[in-house]
């Protein structure tokens, strides 16, 4: 396997407190490899430590212990001068864009080039190229105050790409945007990832962002990574409660309201119906397993909700079905033997 673009090796970050209460631990025992050329998402609730984790990649935060290796450089141990050189290989975009209000779109994009002491004669051509890539040619001489949120983030992206970095960090880049604009910005990031082979590491609290563009994901909770891997396998076999709660409503379907209101933890009588979430992944997503359950075992299946979508270019199906509680164990065994995953959500009746 190729060298990871970014590697967190046993990273801990503590914030010393003045009071004797002890240090606040923001991150603990982080081991994480971010693969080259992939889009990796770190998902967590606010305060989980994802922002601190992201800022360690370009040295805006330093680890209290452990190493952060980026493009082969040990960022945590770098001197100020070499850190500035490393930062030019790592672009960053922000939730609130952080554009200079006093500079036009073109001037904002030129800023990192000026900072890198690029030959002034070569800046306009490079800026023009970047403006075209993000589709803002008509807005080149406008000021940020005259742009929409989506346009501002495009400027942010162009600016982050100016010094031709190998890694792009995204700090909740779509959290301040509406769903349509979010989709456009994510598509732009995805096309940049594919066309430039740029490694993207993003943090988000929205599983939809992970589903849409991340091939890899790490779930962070209270300063620890609780689950990490390829998005598809994490989505299909979430191992941690936090992951499952993030997945709710993002993959497939939610339990319909008229059923959710009646759900109980235990069946009340023999005629009760078990409400089961069935997840189909990979090649099984297209198999007619429920039909076979009915045909071969004579179990009647009541479909309550369902959807099939694509995650990481693979089909991912999710169904919520009602099964007779008396035949629940047998049915689950049948489905699981054929590669489907089942989870009992509760009972009705």
């Amino acid at each position: 396997m190729a060298e990871p673009a970014i590697s967190f090796q046993d990273v801990t970050r503590r914030y010393p407190q003045k009071a004797a209460a002890g240090d606040v631990v923001a991150l603990q025992d982080i081991w994480l490899d971010v693969p080259q050329g992939a889009v990796t998402g770190i998902i967590g609730r606010s305060g989980a430590g994802k922002s601190t984790l992201l800022r360690m990649v370009n040295g805006l935060e330093r680890p209290s212990s452990g190493k952060v290796i980026v493009n082969g450089h040990d960022v945590g141990a770098a001197s100020d001068a070499s850190l500035r050189a490393i930062r030019r290989e790592v672009g960053m975009i922000f939730q609130h864009f952080n554009l200079l209000a006093s500079r036009t779109v073109a001037e904002n994009i030129a800023l990192p080039l000026e900072i890198a002491s690029e030959d002034p004669a070569r800046i306009p051509a490079r800026v023009g190229e970047l403006i075209e890539r993000v589709g803002l040619t008509a807005q080149a001489s406008r000021y940020p105050a005259e742009l929409s949120g989506g346009q501002k983030q495009r400027v942010g992206i162009a600016r982050a790409l100016a010094t031709a970095p190998r890694v792009l960090l995204s700090d909740e880049a779509t959290s301040a945007l509406d769903p349509d604009t979010t989709r456009q910005v994510l598509e732009l990031l995805q096309s940049i990832n594919r066309e430039l082979g740029l490694t993207i590491l993003l943090i988000t609290h929205e599983m939809g962002v992970v589903r849409d563009i991340c091939s890899h994901v790490a779930v962070i909770e209270a300063g620890r990574i609780v689950e990490a891997g390829e998005t598809y396998s994490v989505f299909s076999r979430p191992g941690h409660a936090t992951t499952r709660s993030f997945l709710q409503g993002v993959t497939g379907v939610a339990v319909p309201h008229f059923v959710a209101g009646q759900l109980r933890d235990t069946p009340q009588d023999a005629s009760a119906e078990a409400v089961v979430q069935v997840t189909f992944t990979g090649r099984h997503a297209t198999d007619p397993m429920l039909a076979r359950l009915t045909a071969e075992r004579g179990v009647s299946v009541n479909i309550l909700a369902g959807a099939i979508e694509e995650i990481g270019d693979k089909p991912f199906g999710s169904l919520i079905v009602g099964l007779p509680s008396g035949r629940l164990d047998e049915s689950r065994r049948f489905l699981e033997e054929h590669g489907l995953m089942t989870e009992v959500l509760g009972y009705v009746g």
């Binding site: 370009n58 805006l60 490393i86 930062r87 952080n98 800023l111 900072i115 890198a116 010094t163």
Partner: peptide, 9 residues
């Protein structure tokens, strides 16, 4: 922060 991330002194 954005400027620091760009490698500005």
């Amino acid at each position: 922060e954005a400027a620091r991330a760009m490698g500005a002194a």
